[in-house]
Amino acid sequence: MIEFKDVSLVYPNGTQGLKNVNTNIKEGEFVVIVGLSGAGKSTFIRSINRLVTPTSGQLLVEDENILAYKGKSMRKLRTKVGMIFQNYNLVKRSTVMKNVISGRLGHTGTFKSIFNLYPKEDFALAYESLKRVNIEEKVYSRADQLSGGQQQRVSIARVLTQQPKIILADEPVASLDPPTSHQVMKYLKQINREDKITTIVNLHFIDMAMEYADRIIGMRAGEVVFDGPASEVTEQTFEEIYGRKIREDDIRGGKEEDEQHS
């Protein structure tokens, strides 16, 4: 579904983001990219929806080279690739509903979206998405009244409303505490299973990678240094990827608690 063919990316300041990356991600896979910060995880993920543009090679999404995309075709690509961010990136002053319905922007005409004239099905879909991440009671709250974990769930609901074929998550749990992190990962995994959405997640916690991934791709200095099923991965594999001993802050720990407050 997603195929990197000798993809490299050099940033204008000379930093090598990606270096001859070759990999193939199949439909419905749950892939976790691991690596230290600066290893190229973000660049890898952001290449897939062209938030950054690789400087050489070919990147195929559904058998089309997306590096040639511009304007309209790029927006079309982005409608089928949803993204979740470390800092949730919600419009803080808007309601949860307005944030979630903005997942439909790519599917809706400019005029209709400005005047909030979405079809009924879209509102139903948005509400359904909120229900799937158990936050439907906050539908008319302002986004800034929610906790970090709740905001991340809203941003998952936004992506669900987009009905993408691929979900990219760039360090989705780095700003959350351990129980909330597990909760967010659990929702991502569940969505991946139920909707068969190909999911690619950046993480640097090795225990979470091992727990949730089908497949782990390890990166260092812009290169893929490991690629294999999560079942084959041990702590030693991570030490090889990271190029150093595993430390305490590489492990998230904690288990999901029963939801009491949310």
């Binding site: 929806n49 903005s102 979206s113 936004r158």
Partner: peptide
């Protein structure tokens, strides 16, 4: 600007980004 980036990433065009991402802020 991260909000703007998020809207770009879900396929919104410039005018939609203006109304959904920038004006509310």
């Amino acid at each position: 600007m991260h909000v703007v980036e998020a809207m770009e990433a879900n396929g919104a065009n410039k005018i939609q980004i203006l109304f959904y991402g920038i004006i509310p802020q």
